[in-house]
Design a protein around this nucleic acid. Structure first.
Lengths: 220, 220
DNA sequence: CGAATAATCTATCGATCGGTATTATATTAT
DNA sequence: ATAATATAATACCGATCGATAGATTATTCG
């Protein structure tokens, strides 16, 4: 967003040498897209320097090496685009709308014209999970944290009587995340944005199944 | 399986030159595991020749180049391990058992000690779908075919009164395959075989939800 | 027995890989 | 100005990449 040369977020005193032109976050965002597109092995330094607009040594001074850049890019993705679906879920007070928004945002991000198709985690980093243990751990933790947050919300909705306790909240949470992963895989396999969006209602209904307000008991 | 030097399946007359020692299918199976482990970009010719036990030129004489080998490996996977879950599904006359067997076989294949973790399609080839159009098309077709077969079975069960028509058979089929993809991703992310197997019942129940024999109407 | 044929391996190709030593540039402090 | 300091780009490193030319080996045919 910020195109001015603002190296330090805090109004710190200017340091001595040549002023920094590298915007860490901007470069990182570009690197995310490269890894997202090509995976770890396919993301060559040439592609990365071309996308970020900085030379190899500059990239290496900011991030240690390709491996570290990849791990940092995963974090950046999780904190950015990767967090949007869950944020929409949690921001929506109505559980039906929340689940719907979750899949809607996810579907749009999986097919956004400004970004690669699918999900960096589920479609690109997942391959390297087999050979890079820290990548595998990162994905595992990411899934675990997301699941815990979704589960907590579902438990709250059960207590409020908005959601049946059958199936239990944790299984419902797993289903929600599973359908998100599958959505990303489908996008990567070529399913269009429209088709994905058409599937949102069904996915939401699956997750919300057995709700008290379902047909079998309309009374609240 | 066959360890003898049997190049031709049919009892054809011996050809002229040096007898072939390369068993195409065996080499292909080894190549599958390498691509499964490392993805397309990460599967170096050194890894491939080491795994198959044949030299580079031999590998290139049997398969055109690395790209062709990859595409052929995807076919081999789809016809082999990748077909087992659906085969178990179709072989089982009872729809509950069929769905259960589907996820059970899939979970075991995703965590088999003799093979890489996850699914070649959903965890390895999926990355290359972005950069290799023929890979993307292959995955898309594979999904489409599987979905059609599952859908046909579900439609049959609806006609037989074994399954509710709500949700419709095609959405049920999509859910089944989505949960299979997600299962593979979870395995790759580190979920253990036991944990995956414990999730089989829940997944099966989700797919079979709204069945006539469910709690809300026990009468058949 | 060669001669012909086919399959295989050794050795090597140019290109590209990730990574870095070195130099150039832009700023502040003196 | 000049020195000191920090950042960035040029140019290059050995290693490995995918791919292949050419030699080698094993078989059948004559």
């Amino acid at each position: 967003m910020n195109t001015t040369t603002a190296p330090q977020p805090s109004p710190q005193k200017r340091s001595r040498g040549r002023p920094r032109v590298l915007e860490r976050q901007t470069a990182l965002d570009q690197a995310v897209d490269v890894f997202w597109d090509h995976g770890y092995e396919g993301a060559s330094l040439e592609l990365l320097t071309e996308a970020t607009g900085v030379s190899r040594p500059t990239l290496y001074s900011a991030f240690n090496d390709k491996r570290s850049l990849f791990l940092t890019a995963i974090d950046a993705y999780e904190d950015g685009i990767g967090a949007e679906a869950l944020a929409a879920f949690e921001a929506n007070p109505n559980i039906r709308s929340a689940v719907h928004a979750f899949f809607d945002v996810s579907a749009r991000n999986n097919t956004h014209p400004d970004h690669p198709v699918g999900c960096l985690i589920a479609c690109s980093a997942i391959t390297s999970a087999q050979t890079m243990p820290d990548v595998r751990a990162k994905i595992e933790n990411s899934f675990r944290r997301a699941e815990a947050r979704v589960c907590a919300r579902f438990e709250r909705e059960v207590e409020n009587g908005e959601l049946s306790s059958k199936p239990p909240a944790n299984e419902r949470a797993k289903l929600l995340l599973d359908l998100m992963s599958a959505q990303a895989v489908r996008a990567r396999a070529g399913e269009s944005r429209d088709d994905l969006l058409h599937g949102v209602n069904t996915r939401a209904a699956m997750v919300l199944a057995h709700m008290p307000s379902d047909a079998k008991d309309k009374a609240r």
